[in-house]
Design a protein around this nucleic acid. Sequence first.
DNA 1: CGCTCAAGGTTCGGTCACTGAATCGACTCG
DNA 2: CGAGTCGATTCAGTGACCGAACCTTGAGCG
Lengths: 191, 191
Amino acid sequence: MNPRLVTVGRMALGKDYAAQQCSIARALEVVGERWTLLVIRDALYGVRRYNDFLVHLGIPRAVLAARLQTLTAEGILARRRYQESPPRDEYVVTERGIALWPTLWALGLWGREHYGQSPLRVFRHADCGTELGPYGECPACGTAVPVPDVEMAPGPGLDPDPADPVSRALLRPKRLLQPIETGPASDAGTA
Amino acid sequence: MNPRLVTVGRMALGKDYAAQQCSIARALEVVGERWTLLVIRDALYGVRRYNDFLVHLGIPRAVLAARLQTLTAEGILARRRYQESPPRDEYVVTERGIALWPTLWALGLWGREHYGQSPLRVFRHADCGTELGPYGECPACGTAVPVPDVEMAPGPGLDPDPADPVSRALLRPKRLLQPIETGPASDAGTA
DNA sequence: CGCTCAAGGTTCGGTCACTGAATCGACTCG
DNA sequence: CGAGTCGATTCAGTGACCGAACCTTGAGCG
């Protein structure tokens, strides 16, 4: 069961981009389905648990389960047990998934420049605090910024009081990949 | 008829990524449907005519017509009459479409590194002949390479004798955006 | 033990998009 | 004036997506 060959049988979107030799087409066979890139985005943001993906994305449960399975089979996410008592698994992004960050960054930049108004999130080089440049690099340091060194903070356009706990957890500045804390949910911490 | 607002009415995939504030989600509403990014890729490669997209992508006609219409409405492609006698239009990529090149480059790089074997196409800085770096920049000149200055040549993995005339036209090294020549098609020029 | 709750799914009917083949209309060429 | 080309549209069939309901495992509790 070579994970690289799993695509045969249930192909990306019911059919591959036949005859396409381009590596872009190959990539889209894997991550081109609806929701897939948003799941990976969330994973890079630190989302790891089924329910967190669910509430943050508003994705149908069945679709989420399918995507997580595909992404795990493709080696973009990895399933990992994080507690035993009630057995619970989380999905952590692998190197292969992290390698999609430049794509997501470029796509987000395009969306922001052509459809967005004010930036919703601000990404900085954690070492120096400089905002990332158009390629995700640090203009001050002149170097590529490793994904774990990217700090994400809310921008001016972001809803300051979102409904779901995941969005609320993402209001706090944090580094990419660092897991979000929806933890015991000191949820409106009453009583 | 603000082209920015056309998405209302017939949304990208029948439904928008509701509640998503992220600019990545916005972008995917526009270019996240099946085939869309491949159409844009082909447009950047110099494909301009309905039939050329059709044979090169192997896309259903109805879907192609829908994508071209959406992309035109979004201002990513522009429709332009290129002859009057039989009225014929071509679709040329706009600035907004050209701005997607970094995304496509990043996606292609990811696909090549994680799923491809030998590179199918080689992209160079036309001014100096240096292969593009991971961000689409020129490592030699140390600058971003404007899309019209990117030269595309076939790589070792590319089928040297493809069936369709568009792929055959793309065997010749050429710059991005420069229209392909499928012209009078000296098609296997037999008697 | 039985009840309830939570997490993480699976099942299922309805709808919608994609597919591929056929058709159509405008126009030119012979 | 019939055939061919280009650029589509139409249509039936299939498969993916959607949303709600249900299921399973394991605590936590009385």
